[in-house]
Amino acid sequence: MLEFPVRTLVLLLLSSAMAVSAERDNCFESREGFGPVNTVKTENGESNIRCSEETGAVLWWQDAFEGTGPMHPMLHGARLQKTPPEESSASEQAVIKAIIPTLKLYPVCGTACHNGSYPPLSDNSPRKLVMHMDVVPDASNLQHGKGALWCLDCHHNTQRNSLLDNFGKEIHMDAAPLLCAKCHGNTFTDWSNGIHGKALGEWQSHGKKRWFGCSECHNPHDVVNGESENGFKAISPEQITTKDR
């Protein structure tokens, strides 16, 4: 008896929120706090995306390719190494949202401190850092790799805007999945085949597709805390409103 008016109130609140849901500012595409998206009006006056009024997640795209660009050549090359050459032109259809504009520290990292002019660190062992505590609260206790990893296992020693491959060479930040592939090879293979990860765009095997990079869904600095039963951070579900079928 008590439940009914509460539920009705919630529903009323929700329905009043629905009117402005399309204009919601803090929408996010994959994981909360990463890659906020803005609603853009398209030619026919409709909003490009529709977000959930409950969680803010983008549920519906009118144009899935809004704000995307071609995939980084390094990544593209790695993805296509098994593809016959005649198909590689068709695979130019792969687009992705660049990570760099979403990284707050990126412009500073490469110019202010880690521009290569400082001598490389001789000591790679984990220790507490006073910097970057907003990204990694406790660098000596990184929540990735169960104690086996530290900053410089992934980030380049002197060129801090780049990532590091197994042979000490640089990986461009926009080709980050190549870094992840160092340990998660099977997952990278599945991702390259389109089996792992989000799928936006066209269904044809040669169609234009929007790819999601690893870090658009997984937080590389906090994968352990984000882990749960299914290896994905718990999120609040969309609620359904009726039992009447």
Binding site: I195, G197, A199, Q204, S205
Partner: peptide, 12 residues
């Protein structure tokens, strides 16, 4: 397109 974990796949 909406699936946040990429669990759904579709094709020919």
């Amino acid at each position: 397109e909406a699936c946040p974990v990429g669990a759904r796949k579709f094709g020919n």
